[in-house]
Design a protein around this nucleic acid. Structure first.
Lengths: 228, 228
DNA sequence: AATAACACGTGACAC
DNA sequence: TGTGTCACGTGTTAT
């Protein structure tokens, strides 16, 4: 829990001593220097984490207009206000669109919307829609991921073709927040092969592959509600 | 790690305790014991600052939907992505409004007194419209169908990219019961282009095109009953 | 065991 | 002279 508001008695006698002890004398590792590298790893890792967060904050400031103060808290606050403003804008604008659209419906341009396909409406409730897997398990035959350049990967996978397989694959990539640059899908004799160029921040090849893999298996499993 | 359940409301820190624990032996006392209260102030001040930032961050998370990881950096990243998504949405929505507007102007059968201003209008909308239309209206830019041989067609369409556009396109073809042989999808700067070879019994080129066309517009239309 | 994410106290620098 | 903000290294905790 990070909400350690009251932090009962952290034995203050210990920390003052320990700090003095492990301050200097620790290079006595016989082989490889394990103890020092433990903390050394930590400090460089922490430094990376801080830098990442700093970059993110600065990127956040870039997409929010009218930032007044460069202060961390203010940046976040401005972002919050901006998002809420966009939300309101979206609401009114969409109301207007609906208004116009309904007027358009009165026109005799629509002749036959009654023979439209059946399963178009179904799901898609607003805030979070779930990949409901119902049935048709997708059998993953092959999957590999290659990093072409920084943040750009090519993913190739072939799997068994079931009903809605293509839809599910698309949902998969969408749910993983991978930005698809270009994709090629081929279906032949019961199998589907998909090759896709994606753009993904901060991911690493193996992590990405693992993510896709688990996402597919989770897709078959009627248990995991992967929110998009 | 952190839990969503704890829901702390705005600033105004309610804690000013823990000073009692801060009376320790300051080893770095340049001048007697007077400097300790200076650093003690700093400590509690810094603690407050950290908490403010934490609250802001978690307030940011509250206004961004579909946050995957609770990680600080991820929260900011999701916020950035979301803002950019809203930006794109705004663009395409405005384009759509302009489209509808022009379409409306072409129709002389209507009196056009109450729909002149585009953006700043619509203060008159009822406050409570339940139509939380998540929709992502897909704006069809181009569509053509060519019959390659008997029962084999190639369909090419480009449209505006919104959330879930790829998924919806796949659903579209699936719902029309078109057997996809091979498909290629490319996304660039807010538009999606899809070229697909399909196999379809008993259809004819123009009929097929019309079907796809109406299916897309039906896909945008909030006419479909969501209750089922 | 190793790693990742935090909160903490502290020194430094700016008004 | 503080007051506020930041980065740093460290210990702790959860995965």
């Amino acid at each position: 829990m990070d909400d350690v508001d009251h932090y009962k008695l952290p034995d203050l006698d210990s920390w003052a001593m320990d700090e003095q002890f492990l301050r200097y004398y620790d290079s006595s590792s016989p082989d490889g220097g394990g103890a020092s590298s433990a903390t050394a790893k930590n400090i460089v890792s922490e430094r990376n984490r801080r830098n990442k967060l700093k970059d993110r904050l600065h990127a956040l400031r870039a997409v929010v207009p009218n930032i007044s103060k460069m202060d961390r808290a203010s940046i976040i606050k401005d972002a919050i206000d901006y998002i809420q403003l966009l939300h309101e804008q979206e609401k009114t604008i969409q109301a207007e669109i609906l208004d116009l659209e309904s007027m358009k419906l009165k026109n005799p341009t629509h002749d036959f919307d009654h023979d439209l396909p059946i399963l178009l409406r179904s799901k898609k409730n607003r805030t979070q829609h779930i990949l409901h897997s119902t049935n048709s398990p997708i059998e993953l035959i092959e999957l590999w991921v290659k990093e072409m350049e920084e943040k750009v990967f090519v993913v190739s996978l072939t799997c068994s073709k079931r009903t809605d397989t293509m839809v599910k694959l698309c949902e998969l990539f969408e749910s993983l927040k991978l930005k698809v640059i270009t994709a090629h899908i081929t279906s032949f004799s019961g199998t589907i092969s998909k090759t896709v160029f994606i753009q993904s921040d901060e991911e690493e090849k193996d992590v990405l592959q693992k993510k896709i893999q688990t996402a597919i298996s989770a897709l078959n499993d009627p248990q995991s509600p992967m929110s998009i």
